[in-house]
Design a protein around this nucleic acid. Structure first.
Lengths: 238, 238
DNA sequence: AGTATCAGTGTCCACTGGACACAGTTTTTT
DNA sequence: AAAAAACTGTGTCCAGTGGACACTGATACT
């Protein structure tokens, strides 16, 4: 169990011993990951293939297999490099709510910049140092709140889930048009034809038509989660 | 815009006019979707190919293209058939919290039965009648709470995000072992080597080691979200 | 110098999603 | 009844994918 993970762990966490003999490598893991990220950012994850990445680096596809055992590992490297290390907090320590809110906004920004990372992070996987640094900051923001270790981690996971959910329904909406309107348009067309089967939905949609907040769903969910955490923390404090 | 969606909308929502002339079709969309689901359930979405599905149905792969324009549409059909129509609520109407909680648990069950549906539902897509029926029930549970239409939908989306997040970190953990322990083991191994870089995480992990609730993360997040919603609804009521 | 080691190339394979022409079956029209 | 039209499933073909493997060179230790 977990033996198959050993390889990707070594790739993500090192060490990376440089060879003693033989010709010098033309590539390195970092350049490979960055090349893949460049393609994924501009053309989507589906267009990331060994050939494509190799071409980007001016090399044959098989050369990549000298550095990376397979495509799965390549993608794992790309994800961790794209998510990157979590930037340091700017708000004062001690206020967990402000810290978590800033953290969530930063995470959302990163996910929006590399929205292909969503596709590449379905299912449980080995996390790299970048991804773990994000988790670290979220958990540390909750230090001293009276929450147990498991609860602090659960809270972080909950927030990540929201970020992912929002990223999912946001992306592919052109940078100009707001995503809720786009979703509403598609839904509205369907409701016009099958509305009688979904009365509550049509009503909600009609009432939601004039609300035009850019990030309404994001802020709503974020505040609800933070409210829920605050309620628990208060209860514990008493 | 949206013109490319027309085909999948027709597939998901009908109508499906039966041909007037020519030999009778051996297949229908429902059988095709179910064959795909069967494969995905037992072997994962990656093993669902046109050939594989066709073989399951005792037919050539190209025969499928008479019913479905491409693989993407096949998967869309599979998803909506697998998610299925939302079962009717068993708890009394009026208590939104109880209703939403039951709804979320049912949705989690469905996602766990077909965990490949996660992979197939990244990115915004056209929803089918099954998927919409779930949304309908969640929104209708919030009727009369004083929340606006947009807010009711945002709440549903928030809950779906949590269900997805939990499904994601749950799956591939054998039915016996609880997922948190598995995640903890992998994380623990990493912390042992690089723990000094993640002090808060190591502390939280150590404290979380003895907590062994099977669905701890699930219940925690669910209650936090519902608490947050309750707080808002109370505030509005006053 | 000699040799083990390692990098990048070229060739091969099974498989994927999909295009297309074709033969066979059924219904409508003449 | 006969012919035409419409439709289904099949066979064949193609570009592209991830990956295996043998090979030619370049490099550094002995």
């Amino acid at each position: 169990m977990g033996g198959e993970h050993a390889e990707v762990v070594r790739l993500l966490w090192g060490p990376h011993p440089k060879p003693a003999r033989g010709p010098r490598p033309t590539l390195d893991l970092d350049r490979i990951a960055r090349a893949g990220i460049e393609i994924a950012d501009s053309e989507g994850l589906a267009d990331v293939s060994m050939q494509r990445v190799a071409a980007q680096l001016g090399v044959t596809k098989m050369a990549l297999y000298r550095y990376v055992p397979g495509k799965a590992e390549l993608v794992a490297l790309m994800v961790d490099a794209a998510i990157g290390p979590c930037p340091a907090a700017k708000v004062r320590r001690g206020d967990w709510r402000e810290q978590l809110e800033e953290w969530a906004r930063q995470l959302l920004t990163v996910f929006r910049q590399h929205s292909w990372a969503l596709d590449a992070t379905v299912g449980p996987r080995v996390m790299g140092p970048g991804e773990l640094s994000w988790l670290e900051r979220a958990v540390s923001a909750l230090d001293g709140t009276g929450l147990s270790g498991a609860e602090r981690m659960d809270a972080a996971v909950l927030l990540v889930g929201h970020v992912r959910g929002i990223t999912q329904q946001t992306r592919a909406a052109g940078p100009g048009g707001n995503p809720e309107a786009q979703l509403g348009t598609i839904l509205g067309d369907l409701m016009q034809e099958h509305g009688e089967r979904f009365p509550a939905l049509t009503a909600a949609l009609a009432s939601a038509a004039q609300s035009d907040g850019q990030d309404q769903a994001w802020d709503f969910g974020l505040q609800r989660i933070l409210d829920g955490l605050a309620a628990l923390i208060d209860r514990r404090a008493r």
